[in-house]
Design a protein around this nucleic acid. Structure first.
Lengths: 109, 109
DNA sequence: ATCCTATTTAAGGATTGACTTATATAAGCA
DNA sequence: TGCTTATATAAGTCAATCCTTAAATAGGAT
């Protein structure tokens, strides 16, 4: 599944936002998502699987719990793809500054 | 259709890339996409409709032609959403520099 | 051993998305 | 007017996605 497809789902975007706070147990994610979206625990688990399989999250086992951590690599790829468009909403000099600040990382498609 | 869903399709991403060169007639887009993806004219036209409806492109009529222009506003929204994650692949000071360069534009969800 | 908690996986149904072919619309030209 | 070109729209099919409920797996406690 392409990174953009993964981000196409609002539940998955929300989970990624949650993970910016650091490691979360599956159950903690389920609690928030159920409150906000009203879907089942199994549905949330399936979204977590998509995030794992597509590289957006890694899991650490802690007894019966699964602790999820954000892996930003696919997001960085998305950001890199976006970089070619940034010139359209940023003045050219500012865009250049942004690129410099980003350290001219490799931008692949 | 949410901006991320629009970007989920590789044909649409490619069309947006083409439009960074400036205005393109529908037919010009069709030529490139057909060569690269092997889909029908109607299919490309449907993708162009999605881009129109979701605000990624605007159309100007020129006789029998439809000239498409990129509208980067939805891409900027995507970029804004991504900004909260940028800290994960950028050193903090660089991230700050990027934000400053971006002119601290409003970042909505 | 058994039970409870935490979580994933399986199976199936409904919806949506991306394509196809066929047709419609409209401009420009003979 | 009638033909051709450029493009969009309609209708239908197929596959993928997201959900549900039910069952499986495994750790920890009684």
């Amino acid at each position: 599944m392409h990174a953009f497809d993964v981000l196409g789902d609002p539940v998955r975007r929300r989970i990624l936002e949650l993970l910016t706070d650091g490691e979360h147990a599956s159950g903690a994610v389920v609690e928030v998502i159920q409150a906000e979206f009203g879907i089942s625990q199994a549905a949330v688990s399936q979204h977590l699987k998509v995030l794992r399989d597509s590289g957006f999250a890694t899991v650490r086992i802690d007894g019966p719990r699964r602790l999820y951590t954000l892996d930003a690599a696919p997001l960085e790829e998305v950001d890199a793809w976006l970089s070619r468009f940034r010139i359209f909403w940023t003045h050219k000099l500012e865009a250049l500054a942004t690129e410099v600040a980003r350290g001219k990382r490799e931008r692949k498609d």
